[in-house]
Design a protein around this nucleic acid. Structure first.
Length: 463
DNA sequence: ATGTGC
């Protein structure tokens, strides 16, 4: 009897495997006749309790009872920051994420919007499980800010030098890579920990020191501290800083899709609507592999920024005085409420007590260096930016890039290249977002973008 | 956000 025939008799899809095993056992041991088995199955489906002690059908009967009595757990509650700015679809998606059976706690940051699986701006803690799409496609997408030993006035008086440093020290775009790979210790790490990292190593090496497309950028700006910060060892004042936003490029995306694919294939039938929220038990083989690969992608993305800052600051002929960096697409083992959990932050900045991070606005608006307050309700997290208020498609329709570029120049922001979908108007107001998360982070310094480089989508104004 | 396959 095949699976379809069994389902016709009322066997739920989830129990077909147990049914087949039991039937084979019962027939081969001579206890049942293959002609009568249909009647037997019907009876077991009708009253499985009567078969709990049956030599052949006990396991099948138990599976039927488990399936009949299954109740999906209620979603875990989550707190939301900046409630007014977050749409219904985002909440729907967050609730679904919080109903994953391994979910233990969650929070929604004020820049949250719909993403694959978990919303971007979503924080999700799981017990002994990791969800590749709750980390995100761009594993270890992150920020790095370096304070440089050069006078702020030089951004105007030596504009061409800054421009050439950005143009020469960066590379953008999907598939963007260097012909001659850059040197970095991260390429001495063991990339054979998983098949996918082994296969992607050479490509990753060529992509070391590159930025992707979309919202990735490398920019110079003016960093302002209103008071001295001992940890950064910077006095109050104005500094030139280099700020970059990039991640783990093609290698990270391949790790995400590989392990989310494995997780989705293992998803129990009754959870199939969870799709990209598919999880891996951390102590399973695939879970261990993902965890190792994710951490390697973390080191790789950090190295990626290192190379960018090394190249750009060298071309500029300046040195790095201080720095701040943080992942905002990653998962960590942390203890919350006395329990060890896997905390996924997808488009969310870690903000434990005293922890430094960078939260960018848009190319026309400031980024902020922040220090975490360790708010337990956000699982020690904050937003990773201002958040989109307009889709990329809508932004391209609504804004003329030429007009935006002129407007930006009036505000003192020079854009070397960017896409029309990244116009500042497509983003929420970062100052409001910072106000909404005043209980999550303190502001340490403000960074105003001055010379911006992003991926060119071809719609750039030529004049 | 990325890169491949259609």
């Amino acid at each position: 009897m095949n699976g379809r025939q069994l389902q016709k008799l009322g066997v739920p899809e989830e129990c077909v495997r147990e049914a087949i095993t039991a039937i084979q056992f019962a027939i081969s041991s001579g206890a049942r006749d293959s002609k009568q088995i249909k009647t037997d199955i019907k009876q077991i489906v009708e009253s499985p309790e009567a078969y709990l002690a049956d030599e052949h059908f006990a396991k099948f009967a138990q599976a039927l009872i488990d399936e009949r009595d299954f109740v999906r757990p209620a979603p875990v509650a989550y707190e939301t920051w900046g409630r007014d700015g977050i749409d219904r679809e985002t909440h729907y998606q967050m609730k679904l994420a919080c109903s994953v059976p391994v979910a233990a706690a969650g929070a929604l940051m004020p820049d949250a919007h719909v993403g694959y699986g978990l919303p971007i701006g979503g924080v999700l803690a799981c017990e002994n499980a990791v969800i590749p799409y709750a980390v995100g496609v761009d594993i270890a997408c992150r920020m790095k800010l370096s304070v440089l030993d050069i006078e702020p006035e030089a951004m105007d008086s030596k504009f061409n030098l800054f421009k050439e440093a950005l143009e020469g020290g960066t590379r953008f775009g999907v598939g963007g890579e260097y012909q001659k790979p850059q040197a970095h210790d991260v390429m001495d790490a063991d990339w054979s920990i998983t098949r996918i990292t082994r296969e992607k190593k050479d490509r990753a090496w060529k992509q070391l020191g590159t930025s992707g497309s979309g919202n990735h950028f490398v920019e110079f700006g003016l960093l302002t501290l209103t008071e001295r910060d001992d940890e950064l060892d910077l006095d109050a004042g104005e500094y030139v800083a280099l700020l970059s936003h990039s991640g783990s490029r093609g290698a990270g995306a391949a790790v995400c899709s590989t392990y989310s694919g494995i997780a989705q294939a293992q998803l129990p039938k009754r959870y199939e609507d969870l799709g990209r929220l598919a999880w891996l038990e951390l102590d399973s083989e695939a879970g261990q592999e993902y965890w190792a690969a994710m951490n390697l992608m973390g080191d790789y993305a950090a190295a990626n920024h290192d190379v960018i800052h090394r190249q750009v600051s060298k071309l500029l002929g300046s040195h790095i005085l201080a720095g701040v960096e943080n992942h905002h697409n990653f998962a960590w083992k942390e203890t919350h409420d006395g329990k060890e959990m896997i905390v996924h932050r997808k488009g969310a900045t870690p903000a434990a007590v005293g922890e430094l991070g960078v939260i960018p606005g848009s190319m026309a608006d400031p980024a902020f260096v922040v220090r975490g307050k360790g708010n337990p309700a956000s699982l020690g997290s904050a937003s990773h930016g201002a958040g989109r208020q307009m889709s990329r498609t809508k932004a391209r329709e609504k804004y003329s890039w030429k007009a935006v570029k002129n407007d930006l120049e009036k505000k003192g922001v020079r854009v070397l290249s960017a896409g029309a979908d990244e116009v500042p108007g497509a983003y929420k107001d970062i100052r409001q977002v910072m106000n909404e998360q005043a209980d999550l982070v303190d502001i340490v310094a403000r960074f105003d973008p001055k010379i911006v480089k992003m991926c060119d989508d071809g719609s750039k104004a030529e004049d």
